[in-house]
Design a protein around this nucleic acid. Structure first.
Lengths: 340, 340
DNA sequence: ATTGTTAACGTGCTCGTGCACGATTGAAAA
DNA sequence: TTTTCAATCGTGCACGAGCACGTTAACAAT
């Protein structure tokens, strides 16, 4: 059974209170006594009992804030489920989770939400950081005010977060390319639809995809790269263009949302099994297309687990004082019609 | 903040002890008082604070036992890591985990290990059940002695476990077939190597694989199904035979261990990129072959998560009295060279 | 000699729950 | 009326840790 403060106190011939002061680096203990206690604690490999700590902690809960992206991304709903899961699991230990869902991707809105959370007195914030000077400055200001920051989904240069939770999007792009190469043994022409080149995760996927193809010297040629801003009608138009201008098109890689538009277009042209499609994120739309056979592979990032990890990592950092040794890499999952 | 027993007691004008008796179904409370307390608890949606419960519980820890399979399966080591993870996470809540690793798959050995655990006074056991009358009887006897049983990896008919943790192997087989169909757009002849037809999980994979192919009426023909008992030298011989007898062989599906033998044989024949290979379980061997390009897809079952879930489910059942609503299905993960 | 000061350490309460045991009823039996 | 005895309910301790505050003892200042 684990060692308790009481046992250490008995061995050191002092009271629990003294041991407690030493272990929590509080003043009021002679240095000899301190050394003695520290040595005993080390010898017995004392590990503070989490229950006792939490029971005390639970009086004034640690508040944490989470800043998501706008709701129109179905990804967010699954993530929210994971957040709620973690909240339920950890609430008896004394945490309060305040989730904020912005309406836009405007840096001004994100900053004002961060200000809100600061006023609410949070000790930590997890957020999808925007690559913008204003938000960067705000984030670093929060860190200086002793608010722990955890970035999610996309890493931004120049921010002092204590941890990052998310996927390696570059690897995701490489994985997509590798799958497409398996689907098209004799190569061919393909088109790309990316969400927006201003979002780093789509850029990463795109460069991972291109690198993998050029490295392997596989006869796949990227016809064009078009942006659809996650919109399905744009994806629809782009797909039609691709197929009309290049009748021999063999595949389409979609890095962001709006996959439904691609499916619609291919169905219209009766190409939904001939043209191979790979996309990201398991959404109702992508599941439908996976089942219909239009989409061959979906590359997922387990949003529920991601949401759970967000809360868990912040919780362990703030409450258990566990400093994460590494960033939390959400594994790349490949999904087919059968593996769902 | 959550409701406590104390608050309920104040509202009902009784003491904490009385409320405690009601909530724990202990005698010594007038029925009117009992009803009143129950109503208040319901109105306030009382949820017992887990910390308090656990703090009490931690005095006499719950012992649980885990019966694995022999060590020679590398799968087991990763699983053990997950078990240790869970053990560390839950040990302050009062559990003791006793892991047993048998030397064989003999029913007699499993039964004697179960007897051992029973003598150790465990309240719950997780095990890889063997499909054998003797073990079945022993398991059901343990259940009658009020020891909770959790089966893992393969379900056995006729046992009264409270939950099952594992993968849907039939679905795994279907997934493998679906992937092979994507790899071979024009179909072809393939060979199968299964571990042992006496183990239900390999049978399930095999029938899932065959069903998927016949359902989709895809021009893939299964040449033969050979057993290798997880041995790499047997896999080597079988692969050589397949390739020599059927020079136009297009793919090989391996349900169990010994994949290294397949890779060796294909390398020898210079067929390691021409013949498509799909196998199960992420092991050092399968990772090597994935990287060399010989194996196209590995279907994994996340042994670490599986081990973690084993302990967690038993813990929640025994300590938190959470009766799992469903079996815990370990998701099927598809792994490629790039997604590793 | 008395008071004041301060470092050093101990005591007691808190969190929420479970459980043993003690206290308080009221009514029936003596 | 007094005693007995259930039924019913309250009290107190335990679990482990944190923290405010009380209590020493030694020593300096008055």
């Amino acid at each position: 059974m684990p060692v308790t403060i009481k046992q250490i106190a008995e061995l050191a011939n002092v009271s629990r209170g003294t041991v407690d002061k030493v272990l929590n680096d509080r003043p009021g203990v002679k240095s000899e006594t301190r050394d003695k206690i520290l040595q005993i604690a080390k010898e017995l490999n004392y590990q503070p009992n989490f229950l006792g700590k939490a029971l005390v902690q639970s009086r004034n809960p640690v508040r944490i804030g989470i800043v998501l992206t706008p709701e129109y991304n179905p990804f967010i709903h699954d993530m929210l489920a994971g957040i709620r899961n973690a909240e339920n699991e950890f609430s008896p230990f004394g945490i309060d989770v305040s989730v904020k869902m912005p309406f836009s991707l405007e840096p001004t809105e994100q900053v004002s939400i961060l200000n809100e959370l600061e006023l609410e007195g949070v000790s930590g914030i997890a957020l999808f950081p925007l690559n913008d000077t204003m938000t960067k400055n705000k984030i670093n200001q929060l860190v200086e005010n002793n608010i722990a920051i955890l970035t999610c989904n996309s890493r931004i240069e120049g921010t002092n977060e204590f941890c990052f939770v998310g996927q390696n999007h570059y690897k995701g792009g490489r994985t997509a390319a590798g799958l497409l190469m398996k689907l098209l043994p004799s190569g061919g022409d393909i088109g790309m639809i990316i969400s927006s080149s201003s979002l780093s995760c789509h850029q990463d996927r795109s460069s991972g995809f291109k690198d993998k193809i050029s490295e392997s010297q596989f006869p796949i040629r990227i016809l064009d790269i078009q942006e659809n801003q996650d919109r399905k009608d744009d994806a629809f138009k782009i797909t039609l263009e691709y197929c009309n201008h290049h009748p021999d098109i063999k595949g389409i890689y979609v890095t962001g949302g709006g996959i439904e538009g691609v499916g619609h277009a291919l169905e219209l042209l009766n190409l939904n099994t001939k043209v191979k499609v790979i996309c990201h994120d398991l959404t109702p739309d992508s599941i439908t297309l996976l089942n219909s056979g239009c989409v061959d592979f979906v590359i997922g990032q387990n949003p529920e687990q991601q949401g759970y990890q967000l809360v868990k990592t912040l919780f362990e950092y703030l409450v258990k004082k566990n400093i994460p040794t590494d960033n939390v890499e959400i594994p790349i999952t490949i999904i087919t019609q059968d593996s769902l």
